[in-house]
Nucleic acid binder design. Sequence first.
DNA 1: GATGAATGAGTATTCATTCAT
DNA 2: CATGAATGAATACTCATTCAT
Lengths: 205, 205, 205, 205
Amino acid sequence: MSPRRRDAEGTAAARAGRRAELLATAAEVFASQGYSATTVRKVADAAGILGGSLYYHFDSKESMADEILSTFLDEMWAAYGRVLDAGLSARDTLEAVVVESFRSIDRHRPAVVLYQNESKHLATSERFHYLLDSQRRFEEMWLSLLDRGVAEGAFRADLDRTLIYRFIRDTVWVAANWYQHGGRLSAEDIAKQYLAMFLEGIKAS
Amino acid sequence: MSPRRRDAEGTAAARAGRRAELLATAAEVFASQGYSATTVRKVADAAGILGGSLYYHFDSKESMADEILSTFLDEMWAAYGRVLDAGLSARDTLEAVVVESFRSIDRHRPAVVLYQNESKHLATSERFHYLLDSQRRFEEMWLSLLDRGVAEGAFRADLDRTLIYRFIRDTVWVAANWYQHGGRLSAEDIAKQYLAMFLEGIKAS
Amino acid sequence: MSPRRRDAEGTAAARAGRRAELLATAAEVFASQGYSATTVRKVADAAGILGGSLYYHFDSKESMADEILSTFLDEMWAAYGRVLDAGLSARDTLEAVVVESFRSIDRHRPAVVLYQNESKHLATSERFHYLLDSQRRFEEMWLSLLDRGVAEGAFRADLDRTLIYRFIRDTVWVAANWYQHGGRLSAEDIAKQYLAMFLEGIKAS
Amino acid sequence: MSPRRRDAEGTAAARAGRRAELLATAAEVFASQGYSATTVRKVADAAGILGGSLYYHFDSKESMADEILSTFLDEMWAAYGRVLDAGLSARDTLEAVVVESFRSIDRHRPAVVLYQNESKHLATSERFHYLLDSQRRFEEMWLSLLDRGVAEGAFRADLDRTLIYRFIRDTVWVAANWYQHGGRLSAEDIAKQYLAMFLEGIKAS
DNA sequence: GATGAATGAGTATTCATTCAT
DNA sequence: CATGAATGAATACTCATTCAT
């Protein structure tokens, strides 16, 4: 490897690292103050630079949110994909999806909060339509999983499936608002307790 | 009733009515767009008047949010108070509280959404400290209710009580985001299905 | 006098009285807060009515200031006219003019303050050009009085007459800012002390 | 001096210079139109920038007035301090103070006008309480100086000392309203003529 | 990469004014 | 005469964004 090439890679990597760093900072601030209430200056302050300097790295506030959200969603769907392709029973799939969701919260908490609180608002812009797509895909995944579970005799059939879907979706994602990485309970701990709570409720008795 | 008295009442009522009307409109807009992203102009547009005209009725955007939230909380706590004072078992109290919560959502949906999404943000201002008080009171109510349920042998003892509290709280309140008055399921219907889901989960088997 | 006529006169007088009352209130507020910083609402509050109600009596904020100022100036110039026409020596005329000025302050303090502080600002509007006319006339009166005093051997000739004019003008009028009707010193007392101060200074030794 | 150091000084000085420049412009406009009647836009126009751009340099319109006034007062009191500490007779002190006041007018004319015309109004805000303090200190300085002059046999004892104080104070400061730097009479010329006028009046004969 | 200074559109709020009742 | 409710233009201030250095 030539010094030149190492250099180029070094700076490219450094640049990517700086970007990621700034995005992490931005996500934190967006999550804690809300996207609209967050000024570019607040993000810059948190990153220790001046407001205008952010524009060397990103071309708008929106594009920061975009990159934060799409990175998170890509990774989350990749993980869901692996779970859904594993050929598990509906019940085991449900468990694995919930665990995976809490792992997402663990790794991308601010992004999840942003997704949770600002999707509706952001999705009015063309650029964020993929948020709606993701939500639709999410709903389909859950409804078909619930249907399969009923068919497999694993879940009760007497409850409204849309309601169950919303129940699980909301309960899981909203946890991002209070979850703390490194807190008393790990993401897996919480996932297990949550599963204990609602599996007993929705499974056929 | 003398004409004079009817008149006086008429105008006083009309004034209060206009206020309430405007607050309802404001709550709707705050809920659907988010407090920060809602401009005073948008509220005024929705009310069919000009931006500045709102200031004849209210001091500030903040004071609109304040009135919306405190009205809702007052009514909600009055309802909770009646339930808690009824001398029911822990299990029946839990059911009644959940039902009452969905009734709150039914009657004050936009206020609940506002409470849900903007409390953290608003509560940084002294004026909205009562939001934090309400949240603390809410947590105490639930934790002691869950403890009582365990003591009465109605609820499982092997789950983290703080987690259960958050689970129920989040699941109930977050429903305000999609609930529609006059939709397929009434508030009571939803409450019952929700109770079916998580009661089976947390009760002693 | 027929009852009808008495009535008409009564109401006309009452109306004029109310007008004067409101103008006195307005002048007070204009003087104490400054014309620009005074809102119509403040004037109305001070008068115990609502903002809009003032427009039954006056057609604008400007026209209130106009009426206050022109009433004051008319009366002041009438008084000055009587003094100047009395055929007194320059020195006695000066004394009489100063005394008359303090009497003006005594009777129209808020109007004098308004005149003093807002003339420059108001006079940019065509409608208030008479303020500039009055100032010019005032300057002419003083300069010719001072010249006459020098010619009569009553005043020192070694001082800049424009400076003396400004000195006297400023000293007299600015007193309106602290003068209080019914205070320790009457308008005449103050006039005499002021005269003692600057007559000794400007007279030929 | 290294280039780096010159650079650092250059930019720091440039920044301070820009601030001072903008403040001078603002003071000019405040003085000529009155603080309340001056819009931020007018100040910006006079500075050749847009309204909002002023907020890069200053927090608020109020803070501009604050900086203008406190800079002026600090310098004025420093000058007075030097005079009062010089061990002069009452009469000589009075002369020196008056001269120093006219020098203040010469150097800070717009600030003096602002101080003169808006102190009462601004001082209602906590932030400007130092204006009242300055006025109190000013009154004390003058009254004790006048008393000393009477004790030293330099000033007449038959005049009301409060009246003399106001007379001098008003006459001197109000001159800021018409004084022009570089005009026919210099600040010192005017000071001398003013002193000639009122010293002859108040000194023991 | 970052800064300092600016832009310009927008935001909450104020206020003189109007007018039906 | 006065009120209550509104208008619409203006005001102080904010903020995403730009760009020369």
